[in-house]
Design a protein around this nucleic acid. Sequence first.
DNA 1: TCGTAATATTGCAATATTACGATAATAAGT
DNA 2: ACTTATTATCGTAATATTGCAATATTACGA
Lengths: 107, 107
Amino acid sequence: MGVTKRFIHSDYINEIARIAKVFAHPARVSILKYISEQESCICNDLVDEIGLSQATISQHLTVIADAGLLKGIYKGKAKCYCINLETFENFRETLNSFFITTKSKCC
Amino acid sequence: MGVTKRFIHSDYINEIARIAKVFAHPARVSILKYISEQESCICNDLVDEIGLSQATISQHLTVIADAGLLKGIYKGKAKCYCINLETFENFRETLNSFFITTKSKCC
DNA sequence: TCGTAATATTGCAATATTACGATAATAAGT
DNA sequence: ACTTATTATCGTAATATTGCAATATTACGA
């Protein structure tokens, strides 16, 4: 028990849930918003900006990166986080079309 | 530990996460999609349609309802589930504008 | 009111997520 | 090579989520 039964749902349904999950935690939403607001893409102060430990921020960044939402991660003294706008826009369209088609077919 | 620290984020950030969480499980996405596809709004066969127990479906429905996404719940032998299209559309717009504004300010 | 069908709730087990301290790894500069 | 700054990973604790069996509730019809 306790395991999400993904195999009983279609790929499309699972994809919607997978995308939504990235945004389902306020820390990750904050991180994305903060990165988007930076002039340059050097964002080594997420820890100070958001009130969570460095380890926790790093974990959330991994989740965001695993979803394909980060790019331009150059290793160095400070890492460079940028949102992968292609994937980000893709997520927006996928979610939005889910809402639109679901709404249109609703009773 | 283990508790999401909502108080460190703005209401707006928490709202985005709260909305996304509803769609962050494939069972709930399936339920919403299925309900939207019904001609009438009598949907007492979700259990047969999705491969989960009646108790589990009921729990997911509660989550969806608590978010304000269900309406027209008439008590009776069979309950009647309809998506609250106002809230649903509101969620779409909130998420979509988050994507758009976050994207537009990105480096 | 009694039986039946449909849905909700409870209790519990299994797994997932969140958070952080400690520590390791990485890269730049000296 | 050594130090320093930054980020990643590991280990662990606490909480949340998922799923289902059992049971309760609800509403309808006979």
